[in-house]
Amino acid sequence: MGLKIVVLAKQVPDTRNVGPDAMTAEGTINRAALPAIYNPEDLNALEQALRLKDKFPGTTVTIVTMGPPRAAEVIRESMYRGADGGFLLTDRAFAGADTLATSYALSTAIRHIGDVDLVIGGRQAIDGDTAQVGPQVAEKLGLNQITYVEEILALEDGLLTAKRHIDGGVETVQAPLPLVLTVNSSAAPCRPRNAKLVMKYKRCLAPLEKPAEGLAYAEEYDKKPWLTLGQISCADVNADLAQCGLSGSPTKVKSIENIVFKAKESKVLTGSDEDIKGLMAELLANHTIG
């Protein structure tokens, strides 16, 4: 029997490769200088989902991502690797969301898809590193959760066995479906794109990505419904506006500072015998060492 799996994926700025031009002179983030990428741990999550799909025929893997229209790129990237389709959750009302409001929005989309056996996401996104969205989505859906998963070891009779990381060790746990899982970067890397799937899905677009003046291949989109990706707005899922975006976020950013080291008065020495001898004598004399 096939499973119904939702993979939560996020498009993130690549904070791992921050160059000197990443911050503007005003101290804001220069998004243009940072490429948008598929959040790395979400790719690990996708791989776990695709492995279940390989094992259990009839399984569907649906991507849910929240963001501006261009975030639909992560849905296409997922489809190139074997996902069946996805939904772009996009609405101005979702903007400015903290993790809780994000989780609420994602949970409404998952409910909209309905009867999901497994929700799998990366442990955390590299632009926030909070690891909060997975457990919060689980709570909003009233589902159990297994976080920090490294590998799904087995799935039999509705019981999932997974190996997970814990502080200073590993743990093997077993829990009944439905479940929310979050996957670590130590899990298996995602399979590469499949050339045939790239050919098939490269023209996939979310409705909002289609240019207003119309597409050159408009009739192709009528003939091939899979080329139009799912798109969900607040109204589509009857989301409670009070729980969305900025107004649904209990946490507020009071202030943001660029990290600037405070220069200390430092003693500058050379590597000469004299200087090092003096330093060690000083450190010993004031009981800093020894």
């Binding site: 904070t15 791992r16 911050m23 983030i29 209990p250 202030s255 943001i256 500072e257 660029n258 990290i259």
Partner: peptide
């Protein structure tokens, strides 16, 4: 720290 450690944010929960 946020954004890969490039900024420091002060977060509050007023309500």
């Amino acid at each position: 720290p946020a954004f890969g450690g490039n900024i420091v944010a002060t977060i509050i929960n007023p309500e």
